[in-house]
Amino acid sequence: MFKKTIIVLFLIFVAQSTFGAQISVVTDKQTFAQNEEFLVSVFLNTEREAINAYEGRILYSADILQGKEIRDGNSLINFWIERPGFKQLSIGEKQGAIIFSGITPGGYSGTNGLLFSAVFQTKKSGADFIQTDSLRLLKNDGIGTVAKVSSSPYSFTVTTDFATSSLNIEAVKDTESPENFVPIVSKDVNIFDGKYFLVFATQDKGSGIDHYEVSEDNGASFIPAVSPYLLKNQSLDTKIIVKAFDKKGNEKIAEVEMGNISKMQIFALTIILLLLISTIFFIYRKKHANKIT
């Protein structure tokens, strides 16, 4: 009886020790034909914890799978430190990985929160699995306490059959522009030698953000840019425009609100104007006074 109790308690404690956030790699089936496309989604269940920072890798065999597309349009991660993308790891060139890191300001607490999805295409027959690696989830507690996290590998088999194109994953239908956003010009002693730089970020709930372009010549020409972007024109005397493009080519245009800089300029102009008016007034008064005397 005592032994049984010990075993039950042991199981309870072991079970409890696995509690914590869970990352799930989810797809709808486990057997595929060759050349077949399938969608893998990475979900987070926080188990009542509020989590605000995430990083990790999704590993797959580059021998069997080819990464086709990352979909992060509906991610719970609002700001990517490292936007997820397919990479080849140096450890044996057949190891592919999706590396990601990012944050959710204020934290996320819930079940089935989507981190991102990936479209893969099978290359040859075989059995393999997709697994997570180097996962780190940090609690929304102000000091970045590491949260417990667990994850199970997702195993699958690729048969010797060949898929028809009807088995391809349907492309995301997206005709909407990315969300409105407000680029900000700033400068700080800690980066770009204290020169003016531009920051921008937005989301696209459909296909996800593809890239940004910046114009510093009143919209005459645009160049691809990433945030933070060092401004070429440090005198800030031309209009700065930022375009955000989603993966379907829809764009959202945002002009820079000069914010503090504009206010400072207005303040400086106001001071100059006041000084000018005061000077004119005193000169006029002096002349007027001389005439009277």
């Binding site: 605000n52 890191s101 929304n140 102000g142």
Partner: peptide, 10 residues
């Protein structure tokens, strides 16, 4: 990541 977590909290 810890520094980013601190920023996300504040």
């Amino acid at each position: 990541l810890t520094d980013f977590s601190i920023m996300a909290y504040y």
